[in-house]
């Protein structure tokens, strides 16, 4: 047991915070909100509190309920699992420190420290805070988000690259498919029917991935196919330039620059296609 904990920048005493969790038992089931009072230590985050609730699933009314369900993995904001709406804003739960999300030290109750947790609204809810982001992955497949290498055989090194170019690609390549940018996008709407996915807006992350792979010498061999998707229904033209995506991206990926770059590529692609006849 550590005798000393690292100096937490904020409060140093434990306190109680009320959690209002939007719950749903499964697809098509009604939603309800349950309240839990959680003792919070300095440095705690949303996931550590959810873990506490799962081990003690008793609401403030003293009613025993089922442990809430949520997705998590790395707990260091790199896997993209734990996206949810916290106090109405989408973000990663694992990096949401309680002291930052709810600095109020007033005890729970009306006007006191309350944190609401709500699932992402742009994806079908599986249960409680778990949603199904399959559409996101399907879109990565549609834009052929890969470098078409010849195989795993030993064929020498890849192309050399300037440090600046690497830095640009690296920034885009850190996208962890969390979906924050989609949740906050006014143009990305919930679509539960897989048949409709291929014509609904792909969202900022997917546009940005297309730009990433178009920017790789070998990846660029699939550029025309990617641009066909991006110029079609649900492509980059559906973006309304509200620029919410770039503000909520936890990885601070320059999504609006990717959108501009995709716009340019699609424009050039259309002109080329017009004059080459295909």
């Amino acid at each position: 047991m550590p005798t000393a904990t690292p100096n937490a920048p904020t409060s140093s005493r434990s306190r109680t915070v009320r959690f209002a969790i939007v719950r749903c038992d499964g697809p098509g089931k009604p939603e309800r909100t349950e309240l839990f009072d959680v003792p919070v230590e300095p440095g705690a985050n949303i996931i550590s509190c959810l873990q506490w609730i799962a081990a003690n699933p008793v609401t403030i009314e003293g009613v025993r309920t089922t442990p809430p369900t949520w997705d998590s993995g790395c707990l260091e904001e790199v896997c993209g699992s734990c996206t949810m709406n916290i106090n109405g804003r989408v973000r990663q739960a694992c990096s949401a420190l309680i002291d930052a999300v709810s600095p109020s030290t007033t005890p729970p109750g009306p006007g006191g420290a309350t944190i609401t947790l709500e699932p992402m609204r742009k994806f079908p809810v599986v249960r409680d805070l778990c949603v199904d982001r399959a559409r996101f992955f399907r879109n990565l497949e549609r834009i052929k988000a890969w470098v078409p290498v010849d195989g795993t055989y030993s064929l020498g090194a890849g192309p050399t690259e300037s440090p600046d170019h690497q830095a640009t690609r690296y920034a885009l390549s850190t996208c962890m498919t969390c979906g924050c940018c989609l949740e906050a996008c006014p143009q990305f709407l919930r679509e539960d029917k897989p048949e409709a996915w291929d014509t609904s807006f792909v969202g900022a992350a997917v546009i940005s991935q297309a730009v990433l792979f178009n920017d790789h010498p070998t990846g660029a061999t699939l550029k025309p196919q990617r641009l066909d998707v991006l110029s079609g229904p649900g492509g980059v033209n559906d973006c309304g330039n509200s620029q919410n995506c770039v503000k909520v991206c936890p990885k601070e990926i320059p999504l609006t620059e990717s959108i501009g770059a995709a716009g340019r590529q699609v424009t050039v692609h259309a002109v080329k296609k017009f004059f080459s006849g295909r």
Partner: peptide
Amino acid sequence: DRMGVPFNR
């Protein structure tokens, strides 16, 4: 490298 991993340069 060929698969596009952005190794530092």
